[in-house]
Amino acid sequence: MNKRFFIGIAISLVFYGVVQALISGEILNDFYIDTLVMLGVNIILAVSLNLINGFTGQFSIGHAGFMSIGAYVSAIMTTNLGYSFPLGLLCGCLAAAVAGLIIGFPTLRLKGDYLAIATLGFGEIIRIVWLNNDYVGGAAGLNGIERVTNWSWIFFGVLVAVVVIQNIVKSTHGRAMISVRENEIAAEAMGINVTKYKVIAFVVGAFFAGMAGAFSAHYFYGIAPTSYNFMKSFEILVFVVLGGLGSTAGTIIGTILLTLLFTYLQDIPEWRMVIYSMILILTMIFRPKGLLGNVDVTKFFKKGGASKNGGTTTTP
């Protein structure tokens, strides 16, 4: 917590205030708010997956599963049981974190491809559970969820996610996670409890994925199991990989670029997936490590005598 950290927060708050003023002044219409919320949800998802995939090096493709837990649990709390949104949000996040913990212990002894398949299976199991449960509407899902999420919710959600994850990464625990990514055996030899850090990464990642799920459920009026299939997990993974594994700023930029691209290609449906896919291919050929892979953006802002353990954050 140094000066730089608070400057980052201050800049973010100014950004928040400007956008809020534009919304209140009705200069930004609903379509832009929709896009901002979508961006926010995607950023939270990508940044939290980046903690698992990018920093800890655990190849997880079940992120949509955690997201669906947040979405369903929060929606059940608000729509079926009539509790307030903040409580629903909290329960959604916690439920997802618990799921991260449950999935963490048995599967984190797996590595690489094997872990990927196990997480993929986990995501599908969750989806099938929702699908076959009539209490949550089965295949039709839950409809008629009230719209509560707005720019303020989504902005502070993103801010909390980015600050928390960025601070974890810059802390002792973060260093331990990175060492797990680089070489598990070496890390273990140095006395790092590898399983513990893997589980922490999963729990924190799942917590924020649940948050993103709760926000999107309370913005887009309804949820259905099909929205959380493995294609959604891949979509999140693509944000992270394109932006740069292990770079928070890169992940955010990658997410913004791809989300906006997908939005503005709406008018030319015939070419939507062609252009989208072509940009992915070209990026991977010319920037194999992602847009900002291996680039620490905070470096650009640091001059000679900057403190070495600065918890600098980037504006979303």
């Binding site: 609903d30 379509f31 929709d34 979508m38 899902g141 913005y219 887009f220 259905a224 929205s227």
Partner: peptide, 11 residues
């Protein structure tokens, strides 16, 4: 997609 449908209608 469901969420896209909300956005498309709004747009």
């Amino acid at each position: 997609k469901k969420d896209e449908s909300t956005r498309t209608a709004t747009k």
